[in-house]
Measured scan of single mutants.
Amino acid sequence: NITNLCPFDEVFNATRFASVYAWNRKRISNCVADYSVLYNLAPFFTFKCYGVSPTKLNDLCFTNVYADSFVIRGDEVRQIAPGQTGNIADYNYKLPDDFTGCVIAWNSNKLDSKVSGNYNYLYRLFRKSNLKPFERDISTEIYQAGNKPCNGVAGFNCYFPLRSYSFRPTYGVGHQPYRVVVLSFELLHAPATVCGPKKST
């Protein structure tokens, strides 16, 4: 009989979030998941669920729940959905087409922007091929755009693959930082360890 609440607040209220290319994953298990708490945590810009209804979450049980978190800019949030393409979905964080879970995003301009520009958040701009779903690539190998090998040196047709967002508070919403948490629900042929409040007794 599990009584402890799932530590969603640790994920959502973390002081620092990860850069999207090096997104963070927390496995959540053996706890009571009260998803209604999430609705009250922040004024969400996005709370979209796929393959599951957000209002039914509190009635369900899962084997595992994974919470992935990272920062992107406002106009990239739409890429965090099944079947999307674009720089983020292709080279940084890719959801599977049959994704079961929820994408939660909110504006973090007050936390993640600086007047002089916050350069701490990076994204991958160049990659030889698209990522597979939930693949994480943290390599910093020089990207070869031409025929000549780069031998690890940046220059003509040889690019450092990561680029930094420079978040400034005066930017338009599309270029402001957004914190994203992706909850993916895993149903294996194994005992369910993460249940809503109704199912945990």
Rank of each mutant, 00 (worst) to 15 (best):
F17C: 03
D97S: 12
N4Y: 10
S29E: 11
S69P: 01
R27T: 13
I28A: 08
F17N: 03
D68M: 05
A33S: 09
C31Y: 06
L38W: 10
S164K: 08
A67F: 08
F160I: 11
L131F: 04
S139T: 14
G51Y: 05
G86K: 02
I142V: 11
L111H: 11
L188H: 13
S108L: 01
G74N: 02
A14L: 06
L95D: 00
Y123D: 01
T170E: 02
Q144E: 11
L95E: 00
W106H: 03
V182E: 00
A192G: 14
N130E: 11
S116T: 13
P161W: 04
Y119D: 12
K128V: 09
C102P: 02
V103L: 04
A89L: 03
A154N: 10
N120K: 11
R168N: 00
W23G: 01
V180F: 03
R136L: 07
R25V: 02
K199S: 15
V65A: 12
Y93A: 01
F12S: 05
G83N: 12
N130K: 15
G51T: 06
F44T: 14
I72S: 02
T193D: 14
D90V: 05
Y66V: 14
G83A: 09
N107R: 04
N1V: 10
F185C: 06
R16N: 15
V65G: 12
D112Q: 01
C158D: 00
L111Y: 11
V180G: 01
N157P: 01
L125M: 11
F156D: 04
Y21H: 07
L187I: 13
N107K: 05
V32W: 11
Y123L: 15
V194C: 10
S164M: 06
Y178T: 07
E76T: 03
T193L: 12
I72H: 02
Y93N: 00
S184V: 12
K114C: 08
F12K: 05
D97W: 10
T193Y: 13
Q79G: 03
H175G: 00
R25G: 02
D75N: 08
F12D: 04
H175L: 01
T55W: 12
D97P: 12
L41W: 14
V32E: 09
V115L: 12
H189M: 11
G86D: 01
G146Y: 02
K48C: 06
D34S: 09
F44H: 15
D98E: 11
D137K: 03
N13V: 06
L183D: 00
F160L: 11
Y123W: 11
T63N: 13
K198G: 15
N151V: 08
S113K: 01
V65I: 15
N30R: 09
